[in-house]
């Protein structure tokens, strides 16, 4: 087994996903310990331009191009990676994303290799991989030690490390030829679908007041709407509310919804799952209201209120109006 750390690049429709550069940053740190180098595996079709873009961050790119890689599929990527990495890396990194957690565990089973998913940090200590993770809706932190002669496979939660920026000297791009048997893939890509927007754009608002499952019933939505109105803002939501059709999908804040950066974000009865936080953590001022003082939303909020949102919000609206 080699000493290198290989990061699997993520890209869609000609754009490199930001998490790729976070993987490079973490990979570089790990490679310093394994005595190898960090490399990016870029798989696709007609993506030499993207390879140059990644290499400009000062990292070597292993470029595999094939018709069967025109869009991501787990089977296509798994076959290509097995063919590309004839000498397996010490560590293979992917983002903890819809692509990364689709691919990485499957590779672990196929390679008979250990997997640690959804890590917020990774370190090497004398050949042992130390994985830091958050569990139970981010209410607990766990440190896991894994030791193996097989490659370590890990997914890194997006936003956990600072991405690498452009470098003075670009890395080289090394084309690698791969053989892929599409018949063995088992999965065929057909196309992308995008939701049609026929609603206000919550990403354009200065003030977003978001409701979560803590509001308990749809009938309580006017309470939240009242606060949004008093502040000249719009109503957003956590995913369960749009899943239940209490609000249109266009109001969902988070990883699989909208990313918002308003001047003010008020989270009402939202626990603060990582997928929600991904969509609002960069708001200018974040105020969270939750009955549970251990709710992880209080980690990203600037101000926290431990209260029943159905009592607090009407009281706040009254205060705002009487002022």
């Amino acid at each position: 087994m080699g000493a290198n750390v290989v990061a699997v690049a993520e890209h869609r429709e000609g754009k490199i996903a930001g998490v790729t550069y976070e993987l490079v940053a973490k990979g570089r740190e790990l490679a310093a310990k394994t005595g190898g180098a960090v490399q990016v595996a870029l798989l696709g079709k007609g993506v030499s331009g993207l390879a140059g873009e990644v290499a400009s961050r000062g990292v070597e790119v292993l470029l595999a191009e094939h018709d069967a890689l025109a869009a991501y599929t787990a089977g296509g990527y798994a076959q290509a990676l097995a063919a590309m990495l004839r000498s397996p890396p010490k560590i293979l990194l992917a983002g903890h994303t819809s692509q990364g957690f689709d691919l990485a565990p499957r590779l672990a089973a196929e390679w008979t290799a250990p997997i640690v998913a959804n890590c917020v940090d990774l370190a090497m200590e004398d050949g042992t991989l130390i994985a830091s993770r958050k569990i139970l809706n981010d209410k607990m932190a766990v440190e896991l030690a894994v030791t193996s002669e097989r490659p370590y496979i890990a997914t890194l939660r997006p936003g956990s490390v600072k991405p690498v920026g452009p470098a003075g000297a670009p890395g080289k791009v090394t084309p690698v030829s791969v053989l892929i048997d599409p018949a063995k893939n088992g999965r065929t890509f057909h196309g992308y679908e995008r939701p049609e927007v026929q609603d206000i754009d919550i990403a354009a608002a200065d003030v977003v007041v978001s409701a979560g499952r803590g509001i308990q019933k749809k009938e309580n939505l006017p309470v939240i709407e009242g606060l949004a109105k008093a502040l000249g803002g719009v109503v957003g939501a956590s995913r369960p509310l749009t899943d239940m059709d209490w609000l249109p999908k266009t109001r969902q804040v988070g990883q699989s919804g909208k990313t918002v950066r308003p001047k003010l974000y008020i989270a009402c009865g939202i626990s603060g799952a990582m997928q929600h936080i991904a969509g609002m953590k960069d708001a200018g001022l974040i105020i969270a209201i939750n009955t549970d003082p251990s709710a992880p939303i209080f980690e990203v909020a600037h101000y926290g209120v431990v209260a029943n949102v159905l009592e607090f919000v009407p009281a706040l609206v009254k205060e705002l109006k009487s002022g």
Binding site: F189, G191, Y192, K249, K258
Partner: peptide, 8 residues
């Protein structure tokens, strides 16, 4: 996928 997009 991320951002509300779907893949078929």
């Amino acid at each position: 996928l991320e951002g509300g997009d779907q893949e078929v």
